[in-house]
Design a binder for these strands. Structure first.
Lengths: 236, 236
DNA sequence: ATATTTTTTTAGTCCGGTCTAAAAAATAAA
DNA sequence: TTTATTTTTTAGACCGGACTAAAAAAATAT
């Protein structure tokens, strides 16, 4: 019976990864694990992956074995999974592709920010390092995508953006909207309706203690937003 | 036992196709059949498809049944295959995508014309009519790709380009290079070396009857090219 | 017209990725 | 600490798409 306790021993350059081509499915699992790790920073459970990917736990287990075999994850039966260095880099490259394509779609093809996610899910699997680097240059080497999320550079480095959730900011602060936490189409459409976009100036006029809602000024307009909205908006 | 004699009876709009999503594999078969039909204009044989796709005849037979089931091809056992109206339109949409992406890669991302084919083979499978139409607009609705091949429009219409093979043109004619027949990387690299590109002025100085080679002037330079080269260059 | 060769199809296998159902391990409750 | 519950893994199946080997049909040659 095979052992799945795998620690990355050999260092691995970016170029090396592109040689082992991964399947779409493998890439999707890797990306999901990456995102789940980013939130909790502990080992990721089989079930949490299954839930996020809308698949079954048994399918996840199968895939984790394959990814462990390829030394992309550290997987110990019943104890969850984490990315190896190699896996982390691979995941970052997928995220890089996703966010660069989203940027392309919004900036060059004039898509709105709520339309681009599904398309980027397809485009992120196009296999060519050269393509993505040329796209990066074409877009002017952006560091953030249309939702304010950081775009890893060609070597996987991420320039951290300092930002705060609007819900955690004190009264009277004025800031610029720099990102969203929830990127669902519904939320983004709501923001469009309220004329809140990346770069909008937001001032907190009042915090309502009763329901934790916020009275804010967006540009020149004054509006009320729920706590749920406020806790999905980043400002700086 | 199922019958595979299928003629398209219902007319089918462009929008309708995108609902039945096709797999990558189905799209590749359809595209291959389309290209093979374009050359011979008769029914396409199982073997010719297998050869072009570098696969086995038995795999082709399997797929032809599936495509017939979906009413994308007219398939009669042992008698070859042709595209239905629906299949033709679907194939044209794939070709449209392929050629628009190639154009994008060359014009916007600065790829050379010998590099783009393999990338476009991946990009042509991205599923979104909206994306491809926006890309079309972004590129200024081009009618030809970087190799001089026609790009079908959103409804599948193709604006025929009048062009002749250089090998079939009489002595002293002056023309503009408008396309290539062979689009292999080797051939395109050869053309780059000889400084022959789309738009180059070409004058036939001499036809050598012995080996059917050509003495031509490209711009200001005089060079000799073999008959094989001349029969893969289109001029107008 | 018959035999031979080529082409095409069928039958059965395999692989990747998913699933269900059942077993095993870990966790929580009594 | 024993039992109940939840989580995770295994075992076995299926599906799409490919393959090999063998059978059947069509084309070609004698």
């Amino acid at each position: 019976m095979a052992q799945y306790i795998l620690y990355s021993t050999s260092s691995c350059g970016v170029g090396e990864i592109s040689k082992h081509t991964m399947t779409f499915s493998e890439e999707n699992y890797l990306k999901t694990i990456y995102h789940l790790t980013a939130v909790s920073d502990t080992d990721v459970s089989t079930n949490s992956i299954a839930e996020k990917m809308e698949t079954k736990a048994s399918s996840v287990t199968d895939m984790l074995k394959k990814l462990a075999e390829k030394e992309l994850v550290n997987y110990v039966k019943y104890q969850g999974v984490s990315l190896t260095e190699k896996g982390q880099l691979a995941a970052k490259m997928i995220v890089r592709k996703h966010r660069l394509w989203e940027t392309f779609l919004v900036e060059k093809l004039d898509f709105s920010w709520d339309e681009v996610h599904d398309l980027a899910e397809q485009l992120e699997h196009i296999k060519s390092e050269k393509l993505i680097n040329k796209l990066d240059n074409f877009l002017g080497n952006p560091t953030e995508d249309p939702h304010g999320d950081a775009i890893p550079d060609a070597s996987g480095r991420i320039t951290k953006i300092e930002k705060q959730l609007l819900s955690e900011v004190e009264k009277n602060r004025v800031g610029i909207c720099v990102g969203v936490k929830d990127t669902s189409s519904d939320f983004l459409k709501y923001l469009d309706k309220q004329e809140i976009a990346l770069g909008s100036q937001i001032e907190i006029i009042e915090k309502e203690s009763f329901d934790s809602s916020f009275r804010i000024r967006v540009g020149t307009k004054e509006i009320t937003i729920s706590n749920k909205i406020a806790s999905n908006l980043y400002i700086k």
